[in-house]
Design a binder for these strands. Structure first.
Length: 118
DNA sequence: ATTCTGACAGCAA
DNA sequence: TTTGCTGCCAGAA
């Protein structure tokens, strides 16, 4: 009796949960990229999926430091998905990052690769 | 079940 | 160097 799909949230949570878990492990003052997380999850190339998962992170009670995840160029591609367009930048600056033109200057220096650190 | 879309990444012009 | 197109995986309609 395989009665799945009755609760789709449960099945999807399986994959999303991994993204959340990794994202929550990002230390304060550190930053990573969608591709790095995707690669750590074993689904390299599905970086877009990571962003999709983080989009869902808004409706869960836990705090997910999604602002610490940017694209490979250090660009704040997901800033528009936060409350205000400047919220993501504000959060990063609050952690000591320097954001210029929607780009994290300290991206390479503060880069945190889960595949390497974990 | 099929099709479209997406908070990316990589490669070609 | 910058701009554009394709590939990727999974979820939502």
């Amino acid at each position: 009796m395989i009665r799945r799909s009755s609760v789709p949230e449960r099945d999807s949570k399986d994959f999303f949960s991994r993204v959340y878990e990794v994202t929550k492990l990002i230390p304060f003052g550190r930053i990573t990229s969608y591709g790095a997380i995707a690669r750590y999850l074993g689904t390299a190339g599905s970086a877009r999926m990571v962003g999709w998962a983080l989009n869902s992170s808004h409706h869960i009670p836990e705090f997910i430091p999604a602002h610490r995840v940017v694209n490979r160029n250090g660009l704040l591609t997901g800033k528009h998905h936060f409350g205000n367009s400047s919220t993501m930048q504000q959060l990063l600056q609050n952690e000591g990052f320097t954001v210029e033109d929607d780009r994290v200057i300290e991206f390479h220096e503060r880069f945190w690769d889960p595949a390497t650190e974990l």
